[in-house]
Every structure is written in structure tokens, then in C-alpha cells.
Design a protein around this nucleic acid. Structure first.
Lengths: 252, 252
DNA sequence: TCAAAAGTGTTTGGTTTACACCCATGA
DNA sequence: TCATGGGTGTAAACCAAACACTTTTGA
């Protein structure tokens, strides 16, 4: 999204009333992280979001927005809910931001009511290069537990995304988008534990995970750790895709 | 939704670019049914839908639309997906309809691109009074298996709704909205079998269903049938609501 | 009186849970 | 050498699938 001085830029390029917000999850240091941006003037934190061009589906628009914020293509994306309370657009800090930055021709556009489509995205933390948009001065990861007040209803959007992710865990494989290409079973387990916010038995976890048939066990081990070297695994992409489509059995 | 001759009626009252479509499921004669409307002139079938007023959330808008089509308040509603392909609004039969019905001032409004929020609804078949909207001449139930070509991407929307319903069955109770207040276990089982499109063992079904603790067994039996009179049940609303929120264990 | 539907119960096999034991590694 | 994490295995508990027997009803 580029904010220009052209009065009709937004009206010409984007569908009005419609926005999208992305909850981008990453995993690092055994922590689930969310990508946030900070408004230039109000210094308030928000989810990265954007608008829909005339020739885009909302998924394509979300992909474009995330490409701009992370530098990544081919991001795993899923819409999970539309947020449409009429009150949600009231007291929009973006408007305040624009006012404080000097009167902007697009002020009116931002003042309108928006219905926002919520997406969640799963990305490889190490590959992301957080990049602010034109009305923000910061874009950075926050630990999920340390996110405090966000603008508008963004806290609500974030919570709903997390809830959805937890549900999806029960019938979808997860990990390919959040971990490096090669990883250990304990790493995968930490990821599940973090999302579910509860501990799992490592032996039962391994059995269940292997029973899905979506992992290739490698002969290599991960050395350098302080203890017995764990085996490395990679996802069996063919089976992983199948499992994504057909679903898994047995929940967490 | 009321179509008037007032040029700016739509622009004044509804958010442009945004529509909603409802897949209304009913259950009757051991058949899963969908509520459809038929366009006045093109005679093409479509899902009931509508637009969002300036002071409505999209859920409220859907509730209003369904009140108009069914006569019911308090309908069980769930949004399941946003349909936003730019091509979906091309060749919109509503436009053709309006043209054939004589030039309408709101023609331009219907020509715009729409992003549609899909809802599914579960209703008590016997309580619905199907009522066409102003651009339709029919509103009626169709057996799910007998739905043929619908306008735009409405077939796709219908299929996605059904898919979602089947998934929800795995972790949500279902039936309160689709059955009468009192019903028999076999009736409930037929409902599940119809949605899942497969047969279930009646003894295992009963055990599993009862284990959820959402049913009250009544002392009465349903008489008049050709065979042994089955007991009547009702939902224990308190536990049903709890189960809706907390989810169920074990899928179908 | 008999076929068909419904109520109730049991057997069986697989899956999940909860553990025990041994191995490897750096401090 | 020892605490810690990791690999592998097993007994018990639990749950789901398959199936048997009896009861009720109208034709």
C-alpha cells in the first residue's frame, strides 16, 4: 500500500469499505510471535493490513500486503472471519495519524466505514524481513504473550486467529510453514505446545506425529546441543499436501 | 431488500462492493434442503442474499435478509467464507433481469463488483414461510441433491457451506436448529446421516450422542409409526450451549 | 404372526495415556 | 560423573466398531 498525495488515488485503486488485516505467526526461541506495525505519529501498534484493488481477489490482496511487509512470496494464508461491527471504524487512529502528519487528501477515504476480512498467515520467522508501510515507522515481531493494546478491534482479531489456529491443529498438519526445512522432533513438539499453550508427552507426541506419515526421518542428527543429539526430520511434502486436503484424525 | 425507483436508494442505504449470500439448510422427509429464490425474468435460481446497511454489521444484515425470506427471527447463522474473485461479478443475471424488466435507475449499482460474505443458516423447515424478494418470483426449498446450476458462483458457495457444515459436525452439537422441539433418536440420526451422506450404526450413534450430555430423554414415546414407538428427546439447552462453546470430542 | 424398527447390552480391537528404561552429551 | 534431554518400548485404560438379543407395532 502506498499513500500518495493524489486526491483520488485510493478511490481510483481500491474498493471502498473493504479492508483486510493479517495475523502473521512466526516461531522463534520456543515462542509464538506476531508481526505488528507501529503508527508513525500515534505510536499505536496494529496488525498489518491493506485494501483490495479493483483487479484483485481478497486473497491476492492479502498476499500482496504480506509480500510488502515480509518480503516473502508464497505465504500460507487463510481467511478466518469478517469483522464488520459498524462501531469498529470509529476513532480510527489512522485518521488521527494523518491529521497529525498534516492534512492529507486521502483523509476522507480513511474516515469511511471498513469491513475487514481477517487472515492468518504462517511464516518462517528467519526468512522474514519486517518492513513498515508508509504510515508506520516500525514493523516488528512481538511475543504473543506480550502484545498489549492494539488499535481498533485488532486484539479481538488476533485472539480469533489464535483460536482458529488451535482448532485447525486438530484436523490439519502444521509446521511446514513455521519451521525451517529440517527440524527435530522436540522442535516440532515445542511448536505444538506453544500454540496449544500446554505441555505434551514427548513419547506420545512422537508416535502420533509419525503415524500421520507426513515426516521423513533423516539419518543426520542435530549436533551442538547440550545433550543427546536428536534426529533431524523434514516434511514429506506429497503426504503433507494430501493431509492438508483430506484432514487428519484425532485431535490434540 | 427493497428495490425502489429512487435513483440513489442503494447508494444511500447500502455499502457498495459488499454483499452477502445465505445457504439456508432445512431438514424434512429425511432430506437436507436448501432455500433458493428464482429471478423474475431470467428464471435462474440463486441463493437468497442481500446487502449491508450503513448501521448494520454483516451478521445483522444477514439476519434481516433471512427474516424477510423465511419469516423467522433468531436464526442460527455462521459466516464461513468470503468470495471475492474479481470475475465472480461478471455476467450478473440480476443486471440482465433489471434490463429485461425495463431500464432501472439502480442498474449501475448492480453492475459494480461485489465481494460476498457467505453464511450458512440452520432452520426448522416446518416454521419457514419462503418469501421471494422484489427481483424474484419464487422462493422455495430444493433437495440438496437436486440443485442444479445457480447464478454466479452460488454453486461453489453452496458446496463450501456443506463442506463447512460437515466439518463443524465433528466438534459442535447440531440439531437444535434443524429439528422440532421434540424428536426421536432415529430422527436425529437421519439428520446426521443425511449431512454426512453415509449410514451410521444406530446403537453406536445413540451411545455417542447420549455421552455428549446434551439430550433429555422424555417419558413419552412417538406413537403412530408403523413399528415400535421410539422415545422422544429434547435438547438440554444449557448443556447444548456449553457444548457449542467448548466443542465436542470425537468426530464422525 | 411376522417383518421391520427400536431398546438394551456385549465382545473385540485399536488408540491414547501413562509410565520405565537406556543412551548420549556437555558442564 | 551426573543432570538433562532424547530414543525406544510396554502395560493399562479407554473408546469406538461390530454385532446379538429382546420388545413393540401395524399390516
Amino acid at each position: 500500500m502506498t499513500v500518495t498525495q493524489n486526491t483520488s488515488f485510493f478511490d481510483q485503486h481500491f474498493l471502498n469499505h473493504i479492508s483486510l488485516d493479517c495475523v502473521v505467526f512466526g516461531f522463534h526461541d520456543n515462542q509464538l510471535k506476531v508481526l505488528l506495525i507501529r503508527r508513525k505519529f500515534t505510536k499505536e501498534w496494529a496488525l498489518p493490513g491493506g485494501f483490495v484493488r479493483g483487479d484483485e481477489s481478497i486473497e491476492i490482496a492479502a498476499t500482496r500486503v504480506l509480500q510488502e511487509r515480509t518480503g516473502l512470496d508464497n505465504i500460507f494464508l487463510k481467511q478466518f472471519k469478517v469483522f464488520s461491527e459498524p462501531e469498529r471504524s470509529k476513532r480510527n487512529p489512522i485518521v488521527q495519524d494523518l491529521v497529525e502528519s498534516g492534512a492529507r487528501p486521502d483523509l476522507e477515504w480513511f474516515k469511511q466505514r471498513f469491513i475487514s476480512v481477517g487472515f492468518y498467515a504462517l511464516v518462517d520467522f528467519s526468512k522474514v524481513e519486517p518492513t513498515p508501510d508508509s504510515i508506520s515507522d516500525l514493523c516488528d515481531w512481538k511475543n504473543l504473550g506480550e502484545v498489549d493494546s492494539l488499535i481498533l478491534d485488532h486484539n479481538q482479531i488476533l485472539n480469533k486467529a489464535l483460536e482458529t489456529l488451535r482448532l485447525q491443529l486438530n484436523y490439519q498438519p502444521l509446521g511446514y510453514n513455521l519451521l525451517s526445512d529440517r527440524f527435530t522432533m522436540p522442535e516440532l513438539q515445542r511448536l505444538y505446545e506453544t500454540i496449544l499453550a500446554k505441555e505434551l508427552d514427548r513419547r506420545n507426541f512422537q508416535r502420533k506425529m509419525l503415524s500421520y506419515g507426513i515426516l521423513n526421518k533423516l539419518k543426520e542428527r542435530k549436533t551442538g546441543g547440550a545433550h543427546k543429539a536428536p534426529y533431524l526430520y523434514e516434511f514429506n511434502l506429497e503426504n503433507y499436501q494430501k493431509a492438508l486436503q483430506n484432514g487428519l484424525y484425532g485431535g490434540w
